[in-house]
């Protein structure tokens, strides 16, 4: 089992972390805990599973791509 975990923008710099795979997780929140070694979640943290916005309680499965990032600021 493998789940891809990605980090973007200020979050990536603050955590000083690279994208990597984790072996397993049941929810997006658990994936965060495993991938960041239990780093504190920023209040404004957003999560996407397979390119769709999700919740930290959302379930994840083998092969999923999970992304964590701060509020978006495009346009």
């Amino acid at each position: 089992m493998s789940i891809q975990v990605k980090f973007f923008a200020s979050l990536k710099e603050t955590l000083n972390i690279d994208d990597h795979d984790i072996k397993s997780a049941t929810t997006a929140g658990e994936a965060w805990d495993i991938a960041t070694t239990n780093a504190e979640r920023p209040d404004n943290l957003l999560v996407a599973i397979n390119l769709e916005y999700a919740q930290f309680e959302s379930t994840v499965k083998d092969g999923d791509e999970i992304a964590f990032f701060p509020p978006v600021t495009g346009g």
Partner: peptide, 11 residues
């Protein structure tokens, strides 16, 4: 909608 949903970040 783009400004609130599309994942871009400005530095």
């Amino acid at each position: 909608e783009l400004k609130h949903r599309a994942p871009f970040w400005k530095k």
